[in-house]
Nucleic acid binder design. Structure first.
Length: 261
DNA sequence: GTAGGGTTATTG
DNA sequence: CAATAACCCTAC
């Protein structure tokens, strides 16, 4: 831990998080130039932001779980007949099945073995918030959004070979790539997957303003993490939340975790 | 300007 | 001595 040369302060780190929340991961220069974070990140360059965010993400990958992800030294051993490091580049994005019906709630005793790195990031972020009453759905949705922007764009861009030309419409590009790569039948024509997720965050925020949602802790959040290991599950969850919240319903994290809403 | 890889320095 | 985090260089 730690190698303080010019260690990042809490303010700087929070500014970075907020910047990613606002503009999305990847717009380091936009974040750095933003008048909100300029005074805090004045001493940090856009590259520094990227490096810090990378270190944060990497640390979050092996957090909160017994996931032993040691990096094999990039030095190739002299003579090893096993040139296949079982690295998961893409967590089986073509496996959209596993719809996880609401009946398998208390079943499946054999999970929580390998939480997806995406959710580890979210859990890590939620854990750092350390809200006394637990984290609100808005916060979770925000982090889910970040996650999608950061990881999905990269993955699907490579798969669909769809370079993002328009930086301001990254989400649409991602959604398009997602649909092109898999042909989602879940979200049909109504709303693109990522669009629904974004709308979900907004709608949930609105609903949250009316009445505060329930407060659970890491255990409940972990339950969500178990059932939503895949990004498709995240999108599906966001879509359902969007539908419910659009109708004015108020959902608690517990309900969401048990998927009984 | 961003992403990725590699190197250095500090802490445990 | 190893792991981690900041720093630096290179490629796209």
């Amino acid at each position: 831990m730690g190698a303080p040369k010019q260690k990042w302060t809490s303010e700087e780190e929070e500014a970075l998080r907020r910047g990613v929340l606002k503009h999305g991961a990847g717009k380091w220069r936009t974040i750095q130039k933003d008048p909100e974070f300029s005074p805090v990140l004045s001493s940090r360059s856009n590259i520094d932001l990227k490096d810090k965010w990378r270190n944060l993400s990497f640390s979050a990958s092996g957090l909160g779980s017994r996931d032993k992800q040691r990096v094999p030294r990039p030095k190739a051993p002299s003579s090893s007949p096993s040139p296949s490091p079982q690295l998961l580049l893409l967590p089986a994005t073509n496996n959209v099945a596993e719809a996880s019906p609401p009946e398998d709630c208390e079943k499946s005793p054999q999970d929580d073995k390998t939480p997806s790195p995406k959710f580890s990031m979210i859990l890590e972020a939620l854990g750092e918030l350390k809200e006394p009453n637990g984290s609100e759905v808005t916060t979770i949705c925000n982090f889910i959004e970040i996650d999608k922007s950061y990881k999905l764009t990269d993955s699907y861009a490579k798969r669909a070979l769809a370079p993002m030309k328009d930086p301001s419409l990254k989400k649409k590009d991602s959604a398009k790539s997602s649909k092109a790569a898999k042909g989602q039948g879940l979200f049909t024509a109504a709303s693109p997957a990522l669009g629904a997720a974004e709308a979900a965050a907004t709608k949930v925020a609105d609903a949250e303003a009316k009445s505060h949602l329930a407060n659970e802790h890491m255990m409940e959040v972990e339950r969500i993490g178990k059932m939503a290991e895949e990004t498709e599950s995240l999108l599906e969850l966001a879509s359902e939340l969007y539908e419910r919240c659009s109708r004015g319903e108020v959902l608690t994290i517990l309900q969401v975790a048990h998927r009984e809403f």
